[in-house]
Amino acid sequence: MIVLKNARLRGFLRTALPFLIMPAIILVTALGWRAEHYALVSFVMVLLALLLFLSGFEKRELGTRRMILVSVMTALSVIGRLLPLLKPITALTVLSAMYLGSEAGFLVGALSAVLSNFIMGQGPWTPFQMFAWGIIGFLAGLLAKPMQRSRLLLYCYGAVSGLTYSLLLDVWTVVWTYGEFTLREYWAATLTALPYTVLYAVSNLLFLVIFAKPVGDKLHRIDVKYGL
């Protein structure tokens, strides 16, 4: 699925972002800016990373169907996020990535984050959530074949991605509250968030155990029947 329309712009972003713009920002920061810009830099870096992913997607056959299915899965996971405590958003993102591909996984994760935050509350954390969920979806798409074969791998991926998501967002919490990243405060933040980290991992695992077969079968059926 093609996301950015202009091919030349896409090509430019794909080479310039990782090899020029992002290293340049890191270098300038490292060479002595005050610590208070740390939050700004990390915010900008995450936005650039999102842009990089969006510019990496190429055109494919049957783009429209895949696109519509992305919007369907996004809406379903947003509905799921409104449940109390347990959120199936990661499970649905991983399953869509397994059967619809990496790009679709990235988009379902990232777009569910934006959309559900319109209900849960937008904030400067939105790009970080988009990035975290997007990456979880993207990696699941890369591991699609082995995960379709081995259920165990899928469950492990779900649990680990719950942990990673929480740890990634703790980095954000520390950078944003203290203006800089220190290991001591990071430990404090992870310890405070420990119940949530465990809850994320457990709920991911739980939803994958419940959803893996029915949702997987349905997505597979759509894939076979309509030939995505």
Partner: peptide, 16 residues
């Protein structure tokens, strides 16, 4: 930014 993303988002909102 992208008409495709706009389309997917707006359809997802309607789907909700």
């Amino acid at each position: 930014l992208s008409p495709r993303i706009a389309m997917v988002l707006s359809m997802a909102i309607r789907n909700l």
